[in-house]
Simulated assay, not measured.
Amino acid sequence: MTSSASLRRDLADELAKRGQLTDPAWRSAVEAVPRDAFLDATVFRPNGTQWEPVRRDQLGESEWLRMVYSNTTWVTQVDGASATDASGPLPGRPTSSSTLPSLVLRMVELGDIRDGHRVLEIGTGTGYSTAILCHRLGDKSVYSVEYDEGLAATAAQHLHAAGHSPHLVVGDGLRGHQDGADYDAVIATCAVRTIPPSWLWQLRDGGSITTTISGWMLASGLIRLALNEEGVASGRFAGDTVSYMLARPHERPPRPTFYPHPGTSRRTQMAPELLDDWTGLFVAQLAAPSAELVRTGDGIALVDVATGSQAWTEPDGNGWTVHQDGPLRLWDQVEDALITWQQAGSPDQTTFGMTVTEWDQTVWLGDPSGPHWRLPV
């Protein structure tokens, strides 16, 4: 029967072929930490529009282990319902998962985590990424905050069973954890709409924040921000096409069912398909940060949850018409930003950067003096 140890070595080989694990200490962590010990006996996998529970005893041990050690994200909770408790497929949105190992390692490698660092992890999840950090840094140097009490308790069991005793905190990770400060690095395994000021306050000078910036259109950008002695954090986006679930306090508020309002109409200057592009959607989200994106079949709709403003597109001959209603002209905002991006040559996310202070947060194109958009604070 295939063993967990051999599958860990295979996983390390796979990640190394991707250009990861160039630091032997991280390879050692992947080979040592048993991912199967951080998953209970059931996970969810997608099945159409639902999430289907997959049980260890039904698959058999060998197939289960091969599944666990694939470079895949395994969903463990949907809308707060644990896979272990699910009697059948569930609709809804994932609210916790075991992140694919390549992304776990990408975060710590991008964060430039080194021996001797004290790290604050936002989002303990199953505890697997916490154990990876513990193996490299030692338990006393790892602080991990989990918002969900049930997930935190399960992760603690997993970690202790694996022989690790990091500092585990139940609470709002957006507040950080002052008792462990000052940190050399903050690593977030959830996405945020804006950088919480507490993360800045709890970093030492020269410390870093590695996170994904996301929003209610669910666009995403991975970035490492370095803090200077003046209290300003800045950095460029890495360009990886990866995403995390939004931190629960930053999640989208409930929105009524979209009903199109005629409003005012005009021809668009560009096709809505531009928002299918990874960076195009990111730019649109910067321009309309409180709007959600709804796919309508023929086109798209933008609905602003703060004001009720909406914009929706429909085919019009060889082009598109947009209808806009409410105090915000959402499509105008998005179109202006997309035109600016196109005029710069439609570069990928590595051309974008971000500057964060206690009072202001901006994403800029090219350099800090170039076109920029303020994040909600």
Rank of each mutant, 00 (worst) to 15 (best):
A188C: 04
V142L: 10
E146F: 01
C134N: 04
D182T: 12
V169Q: 08
A155Q: 03
D115W: 03
T130C: 13
S144D: 03
A185F: 03
Q178V: 11
H160A: 04
G116A: 09
V192C: 09
L110F: 02
S141Y: 04
S165T: 15
P196W: 11
L133A: 01
R136G: 00
G123K: 00
P196C: 14
G163S: 12
T189L: 04
A152N: 10
G163N: 12
A162T: 14
D179M: 06
H135S: 08
D179A: 15
A191G: 13
Q202F: 08
R175H: 14
D115A: 11
G206P: 02
G123L: 08
G138R: 04
E149T: 05
Q157A: 10
H135C: 00
Q202M: 08
G163W: 10
I132A: 00
A156M: 07
I132F: 03
D205A: 11
A156I: 01
G138C: 11
L174N: 11
L174A: 14
A153M: 00
A131M: 10
R118F: 11
T194H: 15
G163M: 05
R136M: 13
D139G: 05
P196R: 10
A156D: 10
L200Y: 07
L133M: 12
Y128H: 05
H167F: 00
V192F: 11
I187E: 01
K140S: 13
L174H: 07
G171N: 12
T154K: 02
C134Q: 12
Q157Y: 01
G123D: 08
E149C: 00
Q157E: 11
E149G: 05
Q178F: 09
L151P: 04
H158S: 06
D205T: 15
H117S: 10
S141F: 01
R193H: 12
G206F: 08
G150D: 07
